[in-house]
Design a protein around this nucleic acid. Structure first.
Lengths: 202, 202
DNA sequence: CTATAAATTGAACAATGTTCAGAATTGTGA
DNA sequence: TCACAATTCTGAACATTGTTCAATTTATAG
């Protein structure tokens, strides 16, 4: 029996989340079970329910971790080089996003394949983490819009990000039939960005 | 006990799929269980396994239905009006896609949230149905590319479709934080199409 | 009518999320 | 130090899931 002084409540929460992260890494989202977590951390299954109200609650917490990591990636200085053109930086950001989908494939997939029970809405802090995700791209789009067009600029960021994501997601789940080996998804996102930004500039 | 002369094998397959379709409509993908299907069609659960090798197999068949319906939608004459501009037709097609995601929300979501067990690839006829899905859009893009650029045109179709899909999917799953009530997803797809096509034309 | 083939059944199994009474552990007040 | 209270943890139990398969029922061929 685990002793209750082993971890504080907060520590235990972290231990559970870290174990979950690794399980997803190895066995995918569907391999994440309460019993497996409990086994890995040396606690009984019931203990998890002292920390999380349900597995859905835990899924949300894991997704929150993924969102944080994704934010770190997108706000990297790599795609904010002042010496490069905005387009180059946007493309770099798309590359970073793509790399993220590869490195944390299962976590990234979970972010989009786990859908809350119908009618349920995520908590507001979760929505805020998503909103925050768009900011780096909003900044990169500043050269193309005046101050007064900030709303339009935000929309452009959403459109562009959703589009890049759409390409990555369909490709990663095998739903974009490749025409040949010549066109790979990086080319596709590049093609998208070139044309979209070119359209903006007109 | 259901009598074996009630339905032929093929009929039974259809009966199962139709029941599944309705269940998903009412209770979502997660509400689709072998026992519920069996109950609805008046057979025992085991019977389903005479027709489908597993529930995964059945999911694939349901998704195949959805793909067929989606193809019918996208190849509608509504978005192939000769009197309208290509852009207008493309926008119409995007609208039709969007309408489909609303009308058959659960089935459409299932198409993307059910991911085959890692390593497993869908059968080739399934891939072909996906490939076929791009053809209507490929045709609408013909005015923008020469005969020799057909490969580029196909890539454009994939990019554009994936992008529109990305917008719809993120919006439908609550992952595009709206800036205000003024920008709704139809506007966003319109914005995307305008700019992308404008970029192509340069 | 009988024997064979085929289709259907439903009990059984392992695994899942979840609950909660009771056991184990720790903190507290004398 | 000791007794009692509060907290934490356990793990058996329950309902449900996909899945299997021997037994049963039904249809057909000879």
């Amino acid at each position: 029996m685990a002793r209750r002084s082993d971890h504080t409540r907060d520590e235990l929460k972290e231990v559970i989340l870290n174990a979950s992260w690794k399980i997803i890494e190895k066995h995918g989202f569907s391999g994440l079970t309460a019993r497996r977590i409990a086994n890995d951390i040396g606690y009984a299954p019931g203990t998890i329910y002292n920390i999380f109200s349900s597995m859905d609650d835990l899924y949300l917490a894991v997704n929150s971790m993924t969102l944080d990591k994704l934010y770190d990636t997108l706000s990297s200085t790599e795609c904010q080089a002042p010496k490069k053109t905005p387009i180059q930086n946007i493309k770099k950001m798309a590359q970073l996003y793509r790399a993220f989908t590869k490195k944390h494939r299962s976590h990234w997939l979970m972010l989009f394949t786990y859908i809350l029970p119908k009618g349920k809405k995520p908590p507001s802090w979760y929505q805020e983490k998503i909103t925050r995700l768009f900011e780096p791209l909003e900044n990169l789009l500043k050269p193309f819009y005046s101050e007064k067009q900030s709303r339009k600029r935000k929309m452009a960021a959403r459109v562009l990000w959703a589009s890049v994501h759409g390409i990555c997601f369909l490709e990663e789940t095998g739903k974009i039939p490749l025409i040949s080996n010549q066109e790979n998804p990086p080319d596709m996102t590049g093609y998208l960005i070139d044309n979209f930004v070119s359209g903006i500039q007109n």
